[in-house]
Simulated scan of single mutants.
Amino acid sequence: MTDISMPKATRAHADKRHRLAPRPDTAFRHFSEAVFADGALDGVTKQLIAVAVAHVTQCPWCIEGHVKAARRAGASGEQIMEAIWVAAEMRAGAAYAHSIKALELID
């Protein structure tokens, strides 16, 4: 297996991001807080959705952050793994569904 070395996010990165574009950075932080606040969906459910989406988008930072946040919110390892399997099925399902384009072109 190939080790893909990804830089670790640090406080210095966050500070630099904010210095370079403070208004969008602050707006994004507030947006994120609003999105993950309890509402019609509770925090655990929202974090499980985020874990699934992070796997579909293949963002290693999102995977790390949202798995940790899901655990802090009370998600079990089993719930996290099921969310990942849902993501895997959806990604595979998209390839299956898009085969219609190829089927139309084959003949």
Score class of each variant (00 low, 15 high):
4 I>C: 03
40 A>D: 02
27 A>P: 10
105 L>G: 06
71 R>H: 07
67 V>E: 10
61 W>N: 10
34 A>G: 14
7 P>R: 15
15 D>R: 00
16 K>Q: 09
23 R>F: 03
50 A>N: 03
43 G>T: 09
100 I>Q: 06
36 F>D: 04
53 V>R: 02
67 V>C: 12
82 E>D: 12
96 Y>G: 06
3 D>G: 13
35 V>D: 12
48 L>Q: 04
20 L>T: 13
101 K>E: 00
89 E>K: 13
51 V>I: 05
27 A>Y: 05
84 I>W: 00
86 V>I: 13
56 V>I: 02
89 E>C: 12
85 W>Q: 13
15 D>A: 04
51 V>G: 01
30 H>L: 11
1 M>I: 07
56 V>K: 02
20 L>A: 14
68 K>Q: 04
86 V>M: 11
75 A>R: 14
19 R>E: 15
106 I>D: 05
93 G>A: 08
93 G>F: 07
93 G>M: 07
74 G>A: 05
12 A>G: 10
83 A>V: 05
23 R>S: 14
17 R>E: 14
49 I>R: 10
93 G>W: 09
2 T>M: 03
81 M>W: 12
9 A>H: 10
101 K>M: 00
94 A>N: 07
8 K>I: 12
97 A>H: 07
61 W>V: 15
5 S>P: 11
2 T>G: 04
62 C>W: 00
4 I>H: 09
66 H>L: 01
105 L>Y: 06
51 V>Y: 03
1 M>S: 14
107 D>E: 10
78 E>Y: 13
6 M>C: 11
41 L>K: 00
104 E>H: 09
91 R>H: 07
84 I>Q: 02
35 V>P: 15
13 H>P: 13
105 L>R: 11
90 M>C: 08
38 D>Q: 05
17 R>Y: 13
47 Q>W: 01
21 A>Q: 08
80 I>S: 14
78 E>H: 15
29 R>D: 07
64 E>K: 01
46 K>R: 11
87 A>N: 00
39 G>K: 01
8 K>C: 09
65 G>Q: 08
53 V>S: 03
105 L>H: 08
93 G>K: 08
94 A>C: 06
49 I>Q: 08
80 I>M: 11
72 R>E: 04
2 T>R: 05
40 A>L: 04
37 A>N: 13
42 D>A: 09
80 I>C: 12
35 V>F: 15
100 I>S: 05
85 W>I: 06
76 S>T: 15
33 E>Q: 12
56 V>T: 03
26 T>A: 14
30 H>W: 07
16 K>E: 11
56 V>G: 00
67 V>Q: 09
46 K>Y: 04
101 K>Q: 02
23 R>I: 14
78 E>N: 15
67 V>Y: 03
